[in-house]
Structure formats: C-alpha cells, structure tokens
C-alpha cells in the first residue's frame, strides 16, 4: 500500500496519489487500486483517508449553508436568487415568511425586488432540484444569524475555498476585522461577503483586509498579520475619530463633506 505523493503536496488532475486500500475523501477517485486526484489541489492524508483540497472552483450548494445572493427574478410567490453556483436558489414565500402570504392580495415585489441582496440559508438541495433557500432559522425561538434583505453596504466576492480562512478559527478573523473597523459583516459560504460601515473609510479598510486575506489565504499567522495591518491603519487616522466623541457624528461628517 504505497503512498506515492507526499502529504500536502500539489497534485494535478489524473495524478496517482496512492495505491491500495484507502478511504476516499473529496476530489479523489479510485481506478482499480489507484487513488487518483480529480482536481488541481493539495493532498491531505490522515491515517488511511485521502482527500484533495481544491485550489479553485465554483460554490456547490450544501444544506445548512448561509449564502448571500442577488434577486434575479420575482414571481407570484417566490424569488429566484443568484448565489454564484451552477444552480439558482429559490426562496418561496411559504417557507420563508412568518406571516400568511396571499399571492392575490400581497405583492412579492414589496418584500424583495430584482437586484436586492438577500442573505438566506439553504434548507434543501439535491442533484435533481435547485437549492431551496429559507429566511427562517431552524429554531424559531432561538436567535440565529440575521436572514433577509441587506440594505446598503457592499458585497464583494471571494473564492469559496477561501471562506474558511476569512472566518478564521471560531470566527477569530471576522471578529478581528469587525472590532477594528466598526463594520457589520456577513460572510456567505458561497463566497459573497457583505459589509457595511459608518463611513467610507471603515468600509475601505474592510475591503483592504478582505483583499489581503484573499491574496494571502495560504500563509500562516494570517489573523495576526491582519490584526497588525488593521492596527496600523487605525492608528494613522485616530485623530479624526477622536474629535467627534460619539460615533454618530463621525458618520454624518464625511457624508456632509461628500456633498460639499
């Protein structure tokens, strides 16, 4: 049972990783006794479990994922959402709204219109049907993440394989960014990241941080470096944030200047 490729090295599609009895993980297939990679990626071997972490690729929907998408079509009782995957997401009023919805009296367009950004959860998906999205959390009594329309803010797209890095271990990376920038952030598993800050500067800082993570997603100690980076950036512009003592005036001030 020889392993031909070293753990954590790069493989190309069609490259034999090992020969013999191994458990197959993601992105590998078996041909007779050979274990072969399907994608360009990095080999992970744990005991006798072999998988390949893909370096690129589209988002493939999974039940339970939080996704951010853009409404592309509205019908009488549902919306079609582009979630950056090969399949369009569908939100039905029946599985999303907490009140009764009568397609005759009520208007779906008043809830979401084409072009709106919506954060939702995938609650059913299989090979034969498009992913169904919901705006309800599993446990209605318990508060889950916010689901629904996102007003204002910005959305940027990151490769879905880099999302775990952006969130960090137990959300360490994301909370670091939030802490330094005072921005609200929502990360979709499909690679879309929404953020909204009090002013342009904060948002720009988030953007820079995300771009940095995107670029350096593979390096070690990234959380520390992002922290360092944000600290430096925040330090440099502390004076203006100090003069207006509360946050709200700080928000208004640049807006006023913008007009002027």
């Amino acid at each position: 049972m020889p392993v031909l490729i070293k753990d954590r090295s790069m493989v190309t599609p069609g490259e034999t990783i090992a020969e013999g009895e191994y458990m197959l993980g993601s992105n590998v297939f078996r041909k007779e006794k050979q274990i072969i990679s399907q994608v360009i990626g990095l080999v992970t071997i744990k005991d006798n479990h072999i998988s390949v972490v893909s370096l690129k690729g589209k988002y493939f929907p999974r039940v339970g994922d939080l996704v951010i998408g853009k409404v592309t079509d509205v019908s009488l009782s549902s919306w079609i959402v582009d979630i950056e995957s090969p399949y369009p997401g569908i939100i039905r009023t029946s599985s999303s709204l907490d009140r009764r919805f009568d397609p005759v009296k009520d208007d779906t367009r008043k809830i979401f219109d084409v072009g709106d950004i919506v954060v939702s959860k995938i609650f059913s998906f299989d090979r034969t049907r498009d992913p169904q999205l919901t705006l309800r959390n599993d446990n209605r009594s318990q508060s889950g993440p916010y689901l629904g329309k996102l007003t204002g803010g910005r959305v940027i797209k990151v490769s879905p394989s880099k999302i775990p890095r952006l969130i960090g271990r137990r959300g360490s990376m994301i909370s670091t960014i939030k802490q330094y920038t005072n921005c609200r952030m929502i990360v979709g598993q499909n690679g879309c990241v929404w953020f909204k800050g009090n002013n342009f500067e904060d948002e720009f800082l988030v953007l820079q941080a995300i771009e940095k993570i995107d670029r350096e997603a593979h390096t070690s100690g990234l959380t520390d470096r992002v922290k360092e980076f944000l600290e430096e950036m925040v330090k440099d512009r502390k004076p203006p944030t100090k003069t207006p003592k509360e946050e709200k005036p700080a928000e208004k001030k640049p807006a006023g200047e913008k007009k002027a």
């Binding site: 069609g14 994608v39 893909s54 690129k56």
Partner: peptide, 11 residues
C-alpha cells in the same frame, strides 16, 4: 478546464 477547478479524470 483544470484551471477552472472542474473535477477531471485526466488532462
């Protein structure tokens, strides 16, 4: 195709 990250049997 490989660059797009599509699973392939071989090049």
């Amino acid at each position: 195709i490989a660059d797009a990250g599509v699973p392939m049997k071989d090049l």
